[in-house]
């Protein structure tokens, strides 16, 4: 690899180095992408470059829900059609995409940008919890839906938020936890099965 870098010209090796930093891109993939771009038409490379630059220049966080956006407040927060009495709390912007894809939820969102993780040193001030509580003081929001991940960090974050939000007199709900669609019962773990049984419903 090192030899390849010295053999290649400076521009190529610089690109390889940068691509190599991307998640899931190893040295060989980086090399393949770099040489692909070298052969690709000029416009394609320029479109990629300008897309990367505008990503950093134009994308910011919505001052209300902290979703990624190019206009502040974001399209979801500006949309008058959406139910302003509900706020769905998620860990990362990608989670909004997943929930929006269902088309079922019509309320607003709040992105925490992480989950509490005591053993990794992620505390209350490292995620956007204060911003959430500040947002809820206006009395418009009636329900907060906790849609953090169902792993340990997500659960802890949800329990903590419940503990903080309950005194505010807002209804706090948690996404149901149970068996995922298309699952086989014999592989289910105790925690999931217990909750699936607790939350069973009439057909």
């Amino acid at each position: 690899m090192a030899q390849n870098n010295t053999a290649a010209t400076d521009a190529i090796s610089r690109l390889i180095q940068e691509l190599n930093k991307l998640p899931g891109i190893g040295p060989k993939s980086a090399q393949r992408l770099a040489y692909y771009l070298l052969r690709a038409p000029q416009e394609q490379a320029e479109r990629l470059a300008s897309a990367v630059i505008s990503l950093k220049l134009e994308i910011k966080l919505c001052s209300c829900c902290f979703n990624v956006t190019d206009a502040d407040p974001c399209a979801l927060c500006r949309n008058e059609q959406r139910d302003r009495t509900k706020v769905c709390v998620v860990e990362q912007p990608q989670d909004i995409l997943a929930i929006e894809h269902t088309g079922v939820y019509k309320g607003l969102y709040h992105v925490l940008h992480g989950a509490l993780s005591p053993t990794e040193g992620v505390g209350v001030n490292d995620v956007r919890i204060k911003e959430l509580t500040a947002r809820l003081t206006d009395g418009i929001v009636k329900e907060v839906i906790l849609a953090t991940n169902t792993n340990l960090e997500g659960e802890q974050t949800a329990m903590y938020l419940n503990h903080v939000l309950n005194p505010l007199g807002i209804r706090v709900t948690r996404l149901a936890r149970g068996l995922p669609f298309g699952t086989e019962l014999e592989y289910a773990d105790d925690a999931t099965l217990t909750r699936a049984l607790e939350g069973r419903s009439e057909l």
């Binding site: 005591p118 053993t119 340990l152 659960e155 802890q156 329990m159 903590y160 503990h163 773990d189 105790d190 925690a191 217990t194």
Partner: peptide, 20 residues
Amino acid sequence: SFLPLKNDLWLMSYGLYVIE
């Protein structure tokens, strides 16, 4: 699975302290 630890904010925090 130590389920009680996973359903309580304090117990989970103590459990994490122990394993850390």
